[in-house]
Amino acid sequence: MSYQIAIVDDSRQQLQSLKEKLNYAGEITILFTASNGADYLDQLKKWDRSNLPLVVLMDIDMPVMDGIEAVRNATTIYDSIAYIMLTVFDDDEKLFSAIQAGASGYLLKEDGIGSLIESIKEVIEKEGAPMSPSIARKALKLLTTANINTSPIEKATNTLSEREMEILKGLVDGLDFRQIAAELFISSNTVRKHISNIYTKLHVTSKVQAVKIAMKNKWV
């Protein structure tokens, strides 16, 4: 079965290269491409709700609207689309912001086509790409900080469970999820599930913070 995706990148060469690679593989169908975040959102409106791409490969540094902003805006309207950030350099800060904005993982642009497809599949099926130790550390920090201002509801939704904490710690320690699973005596699938939950929580904190900011500024 073919996964429907979209690609957003301001470099035509990159788009071309990716398109070729993915088309050739056969498992992926590229619905459309966009050259920046605003372009992407515009194009998205033309598509029927039932026919949206499952995953979007989003470049980060783009003019008009960058990738992070695009992800943030898009996820509020279309919550069925998952995003994989494409980056040349793994700038952890930006990537973490992207994740908070709603991205589910990231890929280096020069990665091989194999890992590209692999990642797409993971994001679609497992709902979350593996976290690098750095991202894991950031997630840990963010989700364990006890906010004085958080309401009990927020606490329940935002903070980590014990298991999730253990998994994040393992990721911080540099273990891959197979090693983590082995250590925690759970299946690697369970680990994957936990990771995807963590991603959700990161998305929520991002949303919560956005709402907070909006409320503070009386936009709502």
Partner: peptide, 20 residues
């Protein structure tokens, strides 16, 4: 090059990524 200063945490994470 991109950073003015790199914490040990960041260094450690980088090393882990490399090792992985």
């Amino acid at each position: 090059l991109n950073k003015e200063a790199i914490t040990m945490e960041e260094f450690s994470d980088k090393l882990k990524s490399f090792i992985q």
